[in-house]
């Protein structure tokens, strides 16, 4: 077994240091070492998007990122989306739009949506569907998710205009 490494990242704004084996994924460390279980594991090979987090603003499937690769990165997880006890527009839109059933896919969709809206504040339905195509949901048929994302975009724009 290879020696453990010390890795420093910024997690949801806070500096964090952890020890990990080189073979451990960022997903495993987030969940098992740092106890951030909001990020979900659906497939561990990059196909479902449940483990999506933002690394330096870019959405990544954390099951395909080695924890050691995150050295120096800013990592944002679903736990860091709300501002204190204020839900972000995306979270609010998912709640109001009933865009989750079992909810296991929700953290991944929320992170991917955060990335989408940072890149493109006014996406069309087609753009939303294209950008979220790597996130699988087996419960909703996507209708209410896509609507919630469009609605979140409106909410964010309205908040920015204020």
């Amino acid at each position: 077994m290879a020696k453990k490494r010390v890795v420093s990242i910024k997690l949801n704004g806070d500096p964090v240091e952890f020890l990990c084996e080189p073979r451990q994924t960022l997903l495993e460390v987030l969940r098992d070492t740092l106890d951030m279980t909001g990020t979900k594991e659906g497939c561990s090979n990059g196909n479902c998007g449940a483990c999506t987090v933002l690394m330096d603003g870019r959405p990544v499937t954390s099951c395909l990122v080695l924890a050691v690769e995150a050295e120096g990165a800013e990592v944002r997880t679903v736990e860091g989306v709300a501002c204190g006890s204020h839900l972000a527009p995306v979270q609010q839109a998912f709640l109001e739009g009933a865009a989750l059933q079992c909810g296991i896919c929700t953290p991944g969709f929320i992170m991917q949506t955060e990335a989408l809206l940072a890149e493109n504040p006014s996406p069309t339905e087609e753009q939303v569907r294209f950008y979220l195509a790597g996130n699988l949901c087996r419960c909703t048929g996507y209708d209410k998710i896509v609507r919630a994302v469009m609605c979140a975009a409106d909410k964010r724009r309205a908040a920015m205009d204020d």
């Binding site: 679903v78 709300a82 839900l87 998912f94 009933a98 909810g103 929320i110």
Partner: peptide, 23 residues
């Protein structure tokens, strides 16, 4: 009517505990 589901906030903030999340 369409009230917000009671477990909703936990599920959009990552706080809900699924089977794999137990410690």
């Amino acid at each position: 009517t369409r009230p917000i589901r009671h477990d909703g906030v936990d599920k959009v903030t990552g706080r809900a505990k699924y089977g794999a999340d137990i410690r």
